[in-house]
Simulated assay, not measured.
Amino acid sequence: MDLPINPPVEPMLAKSVPQLPTDPGLTYEPKWDGFRCIIFRDGDEVELASRGGKTMTRYFPEVVEQARRQLPERCAVDGELIVIRRDGPGGQPRLDFELLAQRIHPAASRVKLLAETTPADFVAFDLLALDDELLTDRPYPERRGRLEKALAKVRPPVHVTQVTTDPETARRWFDVFEGAGLDGLIVKPADLPYEPGKRLMFKVKHARTADAVVAGFRWHKSGPVVGSLLLGLYDDAGVLHHIGVSSSFTAARRKELLDELEPYREVGGDHPWVHGDHERGQRIPGGVSRWTGGKNLEWEPLRPELVVEVGYDAMEGDRLRHTAQFFRWRPDRDPRSCTYDQLERPIRYDVDQVLRGDPAATVGDGRDRA
């Protein structure tokens, strides 16, 4: 491969900001919940490079083929690999990060099967090189214009992300697009060159809190300290469902948590997750899936009497999409009051509209409560 820029290249990154910037000259675009990927193409030679410089080429043969069919003969295009689920609740297409994560598999036969059953799309949002021309030192609006021209004829499953320079449109996108599985907005200054590995863009993500029951924990791989807290919420029928984990702790905090959890470790045989209520569709921890692979999912039950306030960004169905952030214990809260009713869920939205840039994708407001 002989391009003006060749792998490995660390993609340019974004730093989190609490509110949407509105300075003149900013460009806003959806933040896709997928795998960051720079596609390098030099004729028939194609490389899919992930953040961190690792190759993903062997895992996404269908994307490699689409790159050969639709991308310019010689180019480097920054974007995101996504998987769209079309058979989920409500029947509306939306992003599914778990299905995407399952695509990283060591067995060639499995890679081939998943490429057919859960194929990935590629969403392009920046152009680093075209033919013999390096574009990384050009300002972002110029690169965007060149990207649109170079990829003007692409068709799904290859896309060019939509953008806007209007803050009000961006705010509507922030509210509405979450319902299609997106997780915020990326904001780019007008004079921005492409500087690999540097956090020169901005990202705005949803931030929420919830009170959850701590009904178990997992050990940390380093030794006899807490690895993660297992979180639960009650449904309308009084069934406690496992919704996710909180796990980002310092080594010292993991030791402290073990002491704090000790009084709740004497558990009787009536723990709500030990056997599970399958007739009611209860979600419980444990079990090995394609996503977790051989990961040790053994867990220790706790009496469901502890309540913790956690931060989360979004829900995926009836569970947290990402790991929750531990904020504080809530001894003043009754565990039975920790229900789904407190959660804010986005309105359902069609990800195909976002990808197509339909005019309808720029309007809409309101939220559904679980």
Results as ranks from 00 to 15, higher is better:
residue 30 P to V: 13
residue 290 R to L: 01
residue 274 V to H: 12
residue 15 K to Y: 01
residue 341 D to T: 14
residue 110 R to W: 06
residue 370 A to R: 12
residue 189 P to C: 01
residue 291 W to L: 05
residue 338 C to F: 04
residue 316 E to K: 13
residue 220 H to M: 12
residue 12 M to N: 04
residue 259 D to Q: 02
residue 162 Q to L: 15
residue 304 P to C: 00
residue 2 D to E: 15
residue 104 I to Q: 08
residue 14 A to Q: 01
residue 29 E to Q: 15
residue 206 H to A: 07
residue 21 P to S: 12
residue 340 Y to M: 08
residue 235 D to P: 11
residue 68 R to P: 10
residue 196 P to S: 00
residue 233 L to H: 00
residue 6 N to C: 15
residue 142 E to I: 15
residue 191 D to E: 13
residue 91 G to R: 09
residue 112 K to D: 12
residue 2 D to I: 14
residue 135 L to C: 02
residue 251 A to K: 10
residue 197 G to A: 13
residue 171 R to N: 12
residue 313 D to R: 14
residue 246 S to Y: 06
residue 60 F to H: 08
residue 176 V to R: 14
residue 180 A to M: 00
residue 214 V to R: 09
residue 199 R to S: 09
residue 340 Y to A: 06
residue 228 S to C: 13
residue 104 I to S: 01
residue 303 R to C: 07
residue 72 P to Q: 15
residue 88 G to H: 05
residue 258 L to G: 04
residue 112 K to L: 08
residue 167 P to E: 10
residue 224 P to M: 03
residue 22 T to R: 13
residue 4 P to S: 11
residue 238 G to P: 11
residue 221 K to H: 11
residue 333 R to S: 01
residue 367 R to I: 09
residue 270 D to G: 05
residue 318 D to W: 01
residue 222 S to C: 00
residue 34 G to E: 06
residue 333 R to I: 08
residue 57 T to V: 06
residue 202 F to D: 08
residue 150 A to F: 11
residue 272 P to R: 07
residue 145 G to R: 10
residue 216 G to H: 02
residue 53 G to Q: 11
residue 94 R to F: 07
residue 305 E to T: 07
residue 82 I to Q: 03
residue 332 D to M: 05
residue 363 V to W: 10
residue 361 A to H: 02
residue 156 P to W: 13
residue 48 L to C: 09
residue 369 R to L: 14
residue 324 A to V: 11
residue 210 A to V: 15
residue 293 G to F: 00
residue 210 A to N: 07
residue 345 R to I: 15
residue 21 P to G: 13
residue 87 D to A: 11
residue 267 V to L: 07
residue 162 Q to T: 15
residue 352 D to C: 05
residue 333 R to E: 03
residue 220 H to Y: 13
residue 225 V to K: 14
residue 213 V to W: 03
residue 134 L to S: 10
residue 58 R to W: 02
residue 102 Q to M: 15
residue 15 K to E: 12
residue 164 T to C: 14
residue 275 H to M: 09
residue 157 P to T: 07
residue 325 Q to K: 14
residue 287 G to Y: 02
residue 121 D to I: 05
residue 103 R to H: 02
residue 329 W to S: 03
residue 73 E to Q: 15
residue 169 T to G: 08
residue 269 G to Q: 01
residue 65 E to Y: 11
residue 304 P to R: 05
residue 290 R to K: 01
residue 34 G to F: 07
residue 37 C to P: 08
residue 311 G to D: 09
